[in-house]
Structures are given as structure tokens and as C-alpha cells.
Design a protein around this nucleic acid. Sequence first.
DNA 1: ACATGATGTCAACGTTTGTTGACACCCAGC
DNA 2: GCTGGGTGTCAACAAACGTTGACATCATGT
Lengths: 175, 175
Amino acid sequence: MTTGEKLLQQARLQFWTRGYSNVSVRSISAAAGVDVALIARHFGSKLGLFTASLDHGYDALSLPADPAQLEEYVIALFSQTPRGAAAPSLIQMITSNAHDETVGPMVRDLHRTRLQEPLERLIGRADRAALFMAALIGFAVTEKTLHLAAIARPGSPAYETQLRQLIRAALRFED
Amino acid sequence: MTTGEKLLQQARLQFWTRGYSNVSVRSISAAAGVDVALIARHFGSKLGLFTASLDHGYDALSLPADPAQLEEYVIALFSQTPRGAAAPSLIQMITSNAHDETVGPMVRDLHRTRLQEPLERLIGRADRAALFMAALIGFAVTEKTLHLAAIARPGSPAYETQLRQLIRAALRFED
DNA sequence: ACATGATGTCAACGTTTGTTGACACCCAGC
DNA sequence: GCTGGGTGTCAACAAACGTTGACATCATGT
């Protein structure tokens, strides 16, 4: 694994879980086992490393074409990244960095263009898509950040049941 | 207004919206119009000022005794603090600081003891209360942090409709 | 009038932060 | 053989951070 790949891996691991401002370049370089100055050489700056960690992160994300498959898609999306795993999910990255003063605008724009707007086109109604996204965001925050005990662990049957209930509820609003 | 009150007001305004680590003591003291060193004198440290801003913040929060009043209570809770208001809500404070490395544990503990556990006792079931709280957290993050356009502005009829739909959906899970 | 404690003012400290420049290394290409 | 660009190493920088100590000011009580 090259130096750039080591840095990218650690950057995604730390930036996506702890948040941009909470992570120092020395922390990433130390975890990658390389010198601090190599971040500036390979990625220009700390911000360049963060944006690079985004570029290779959300290209795998592709919503299903059929709204009926949305529920299974979200279940799979949340189940594939257990709590504290080595590969944080895109939603966790958003909840960890959307509030940041430096990268917040970039992250919020990414959320809008890469998640929200495709979801609106898929569901067909903006307000319903917004509440659906709010349910997902809230579930992710409650599980990954607040560590709420009543939220079951990813992979367990209860976890899938909880998530499925919230999804169905968010998708079945009456007018 | 005394110096301590000025500092507390600005501390609550900035800490609760921008997050603990994103706010410097110089920013608070400058907004309050007083010297930086007065924070150390009156509250001991930056962390002391933060905890003081909590003490006078959540004492007004009291859940209704009847679960049937829960919906109206949450509506009122979210409607009384418009976007960008001078008095951020307790939920916004939690979503802005729960992820912080310094005050995160304290904030998460406050969320658990002051919001989650009383809510569990009120609703009666921990898992249902957890999903209800997840819906509220998600709505707050989507509105206050992500600034999602499809979320209507607080006070408008559409806003109340959206919030009410999410609440009802979260409270009416089938077993 | 004077002493005392609380409160405000100013400058500086030590640490951590991201970033930069000088230098060594190494491996291809004329 | 040696030259040059890519890569790694080390030390240092300026800026921002929270915090501290010395001194000034003011109100209060005897």
C-alpha cells in the first residue's frame, strides 16, 4: 500500500467518525505511520486530504431505480457498517461533519446533491423525502453518536426491525 | 445585566449553535463586550462556562405527565425556537455538542438522563421511545444543521404538519 | 480615612495547530 | 555516470488556543 493510500485510509477512518476539526494532521500521519509533511506533499493541505477522502467514498453509493427497493437498500446500507467498524458509512460522515465550521458547507452540499435530491427524484415528493431523510439521519445519530442503549446493535434481528419500522413509518405519511 | 450574565447569554448562544470546540473563549468574551480573562475568573475555565450554560438551560424542560399530551408538547418545543433565534433549543444543543470530543460524554449523559429516560418512563417502552427520540433528533439536525429546503420554516402551518406527521408515525409502530 | 475583598485590565505564557523550506534518498533516462 | 523529478525526513515557523499572574479599580465595612 502506497503512502497516499495509507493516508487516505486513516483520513477516512478518523475524519468520518470523529469529525474534521477534531482530527489533527499529526494524528492521521501517526496512525498511517508516515511523516506529517507528506500530507502537504501528496494532498496539498489538510482540507485537500479531506476532500480526497470524499472523492473515493461516495462513488459506490447508488440509489435503487425502484422506490419499492428503497427499504431493502437502506437496510443493507445501515447493516453493512457495524458500530465502530473500520469503514464508516456515508451517513455517519455527514452527521459527523455537517456541523463543522470548515467543511460543513461542503458536506451539506454533498448531502443535498448526492443524497437528498436523488432521493426526492426517486420518491417524487420533496417533503416526504425530507422526512424520510430526517428519519435516517436521526437513527444514525442516535445509534452512532448518542450510543443509545435501546437501539439494538447492527446485524441483530432487533436492529433490522427497528430500522425497518422507522423507514416504513417515514414512507407512509397520510396527506 | 452583570458580567456573568452577559457571558452566560453569549455562551449559550454560541456553544449551543456552533458547538463547544468551534467556539473560542475570545469569541464569547468579545460578543459579551468584556475581557477574556473574566471567563476564567467567573467560571474557572472554558469548560466551567459551558457547564454553567447547561445548568440554567434545561431546568425549564419538563415532560408532560400524560403521554397523550406528548405530541402537543413536542410541537410547542420545536415551534418556540425559530431557526437562528437567540435562544437555541435543548435538542439543538445536543445535536451540536454530542459529537464533541471534550463535552460529548457530558452532553450524551445529559441527553440520556434528562430526555431519554424520562421519555422511556412516559411512553413505557424503551425501544419505542428510542425511535421517537431518533425522529426528533433527525428532524432537528435536518432543519437546523443541514438546512434542508424541503423542511418548512418553524411557525408555518407546513412545518407543524411535517413535524406532527413524523411524531405520529414514530409513536404508532406495530409490534 | 483606611483596609479589604471583589471585580476588571493588560500582557504574557506554554501548547497545539497547519504549513513551509532545506536537505537526503532513490530510481529511471539521456 | 550523472542528472533530475518524485519521494521521504527533519526542524522550524506563524497563528490561535486556553490559561495565568501582576496590577488597577471600585465598593464596602469598620
